[in-house]
Amino acid sequence: MAENRRGGKRAGAGRPKGQQNKATREQKASLQELARNHTSVALGALVKVATDGESESARVAAANALLDRAYGKPSQSVQHSGAIGSYDLTKVSDADLDRLEAILGPLADAGGDPGGAET
């Protein structure tokens, strides 16, 4: 009986896991390009709302959006002392803190959590 070469699961067939399909990549690139073509219009609208907006909350939101785009979002520093679960931070040695800083420092320098969580 002849082997059927159509259909079924084949090793190596299909798009590699985690890779966007070609159409999605192209659409995303073209959408970004279109949006960038209207940057001056969008910034102009933000400036208009920031200066002439009818409500104070709209003016503040537009001003914050302009500042975020000009200087980036401000980093938020969080200081914690005490216990986290079974870990008492007041009893952590300086050497342990230095090791943690060496591990976590590059993450903070890179702009935060790559998973998207704000710090």
Rank of each mutant, 00 (worst) to 15 (best):
A2C: 03
A2S: 06
A2I: 01
R5Y: 04
G7T: 11
G7Y: 07
R10K: 11
A11T: 05
G12W: 01
G14K: 00
P16N: 00
P16I: 00
K17Y: 09
K17L: 10
Q19R: 04
Q19L: 06
Q19H: 01
Q19K: 03
K22D: 03
K22P: 06
A23C: 04
T24R: 00
E26V: 15
A29C: 02
N37E: 14
T39V: 07
L43M: 09
L43E: 05
G44S: 02
L46S: 10
D52P: 14
D52C: 15
D52Y: 15
S55H: 14
E56H: 10
E56V: 07
R59A: 01
V60Q: 08
A62S: 02
A63L: 08
A63K: 15
A65I: 08
L67T: 14
L67P: 10
L67E: 14
D68Q: 01
A70I: 12
A70C: 12
K73N: 11
P74Q: 05
S75N: 06
S75R: 06
Q76E: 11
H80R: 15
S81W: 07
G82V: 01
D88C: 03
D88K: 08
D88I: 00
V92R: 10
V92K: 14
S93T: 15
D94N: 11
D98N: 12
D98W: 11
R99G: 12
R99Q: 13
L100Y: 08
A102S: 15
L104K: 13
G105K: 12
A110I: 13
G112K: 00
A117M: 09
